[in-house]
């Protein structure tokens, strides 16, 4: 089967004055994927989302979304996608059902198809009991579900979600992900951005974005294994001194502090002793040391460190 990709971006570049938000970003997303664009704030996630949804022009490069160019036929793209901006983009002074009807009309959803579709969207988002409530009076999680319902009113092929769970409580986040998996089963392509690495783990494929470029791209599990280093978790008695000492040790590729632990990435397996030796020679006691499976965070930090 040779289906065209859901999203194919080639050399997307966008500058704001002197600031470079995206520098030659390439993307290839297959239909039915749940792709996560992962990166810190300011990496270019929102700019990517806006360009792919056709509301922002790239300075150079182009992207085909649902087989239409975002530069030349943005309006065709808009018919095929559902987009949720990072900020809640619906009208807080309209009710839930009014917001849905509003978007149904803007997308010219035929009157006949409307009632069952709205019922379904309200149902899966558990918004039916709140349909006459003003959107401004919804909780953060419910607002996001309403946003999703409005983005799905015209049954788009591709769903673009810009940090959809930002500022949403953990329970609502789980609900939200359940909905996304349901959608995936209906063969909708989902492209979302997130700064949470635990969420990235739930995607079928992720791309690590940094400084406007994709650094790494793979399935989360493969990505973790791809790290060609050994990760150690050390618990020293003096975390700050230990970090200072370890920075000077040769063979350490990555170092990050998590509370009372230090994660250390070793380029050579044999430098294990060098680590413990260096700490002990500085009078730092090691309470525990063990090898761990690298997390996405470790992968990300080690890669960003190289840049």
């Amino acid at each position: 089967m040779n289906e065209p990709p859901a999203i194919a971006a080639r050399g997307l570049t966008r500058t704001f004055g002197k600031t470079v938000a995206l520098s030659g970003l390439d993307l290839g997303i297959r239909r039915g994927e749940l792709y996560g664009l992962v990166g810190p704030d300011g990496a270019g996630k929102t700019t990517t989302m806006r360009i792919l949804s056709g509301v922002m022009l790239p300075t150079s490069g182009d992207a085909l979304v649902a087989a239409h160019s975002v530069v030349n036929e943005p309006e065709r793209v808009k018919e095929k996608i559902g987009y949720m901006s990072q900020r809640f983009g619906l009208y807080e002074d309209l009710t839930v059902i009014e917001n849905i009807h509003f978007y149904a009309d803007l997308f010219e959803v035929p009157a006949k198809k409307r009632p069952p579709r709205i019922e379904r969207l309200l149902g899966f988002s558990n918004l039916t009991p709140f349909k006459d409530r003003l959107a401004g009076n919804l909780s953060g999680g419910m607002k996001q579900k309403l946003g999703l319902a409005c983005a799905l009113i015209h049954t788009p092929e591709v769903l673009l979600l810009d940090e959809p769970t930002n500022g949403v409580d953990p329970v609502s986040r789980r609900d939200f992900w359940k909905i996304l998996y349901d959608l995936l089963r209906e063969k909708i392509t989902i492209f979302l951005s997130t700064a949470y690495l635990d969420e990235a783990e739930r995607c079928t494929r992720i791309g690590l974005i940094h400084a406007g470029r994709i650094l790494l791209e793979d399935q989360p599990a493969l990505l973790r294994r791809s790290l060609d280093m050994k990760m150690l978790e050390i618990r020293p008695d003096n975390i700050r001194r230990a970090a200072q000492v370890l920075e000077g040790v040769e063979g350490i590729a990555a170092l990050s502090v998590y509370g009372d632990r230090i994660h250390v990435g070793l380029r050579k397996p044999d430098s294990f002793d060098a680590v413990s030796g260096a700490l002990e020679s500085h009078g730092i006691r090691i309470e525990s040391i063990r090898e761990i499976v690298p997390s996405l965070e470790d992968v990300f930090i080690s890669r960003v460190g190289h840049e």
Partner: peptide, 10 residues
């Protein structure tokens, strides 16, 4: 921020 959502409609 509603304008952004409005812009992605046709």
């Amino acid at each position: 921020g509603t304008i952004e959502q409005l812009m992605v409609t046709p």
